[in-house]
Write a protein that binds this DNA or RNA. Sequence first.
DNA 1: AGCATCTGCAACCTCCTAGTTGCGCGTTTG
DNA 2: CAAACGCGCAACTAGGAGGTTGCAGATGCT
Lengths: 106, 106
Amino acid sequence: MSDAPDVFGALADPTRRALLERLSAGDGATATELATGLPITRQAVAKHLSVLAGAGLVDARRQGREMRYRPTPAPLGDAVAWMTGIGAEWDERLAALARTVQRRRA
Amino acid sequence: MSDAPDVFGALADPTRRALLERLSAGDGATATELATGLPITRQAVAKHLSVLAGAGLVDARRQGREMRYRPTPAPLGDAVAWMTGIGAEWDERLAALARTVQRRRA
DNA sequence: AGCATCTGCAACCTCCTAGTTGCGCGTTTG
DNA sequence: CAAACGCGCAACTAGGAGGTTGCAGATGCT
């Protein structure tokens, strides 16, 4: 759909954020599992998971006839780094976070 | 356009991120100022600024016949908190950030 | 006053996105 | 083997987002 690793674009949709929350709560899940409990179809969930995978936020792994998705929060670190960079000179709290990110990403 | 304070939705557009970067670089700017140097019209920039304002990321202040925009990065803190909450149990680096956020927001 | 800016509002267009349905293929299980 | 389950792909539709043009209302400068 688009393989640009746009993390913010992937997080823009509330459904995708809900999916990430569910994934991080348990030990991964399949598309059909996630679809039960959401008011959308399995294919819609699969599309969202595809977008998340394109952004590098989830990792798809085949297990037999199932497709298990697990969250890979590494890109979140980049997004956090960008945000702290923006707000560094305007907000002391974010500036402190920026320093932490800088130190840990080195 | 929508007054829902969707921070991620506001940050999804590359143009809006560029606007935020420019705003945080200087001491605020007007829509016409920002439009020069971008390949879009002033009205498009104004719309983007309106979205950013709806998300609480910029503050619009009238100065005579000008409209000066300044960044207000407070919502970025919430976004960072959400991200760290997601990745906390999957990534040690983000867990550390989560602790920092928790401590500073109390 | 008169003109040049700067802004905001409204209508319009185009394209992408979220969602649906339908179908075919691989993988279990009885 | 055959039936059932899970998945992916393709076509289609509706609605929203980004962008443009045009115009009217304030404000500043000479």
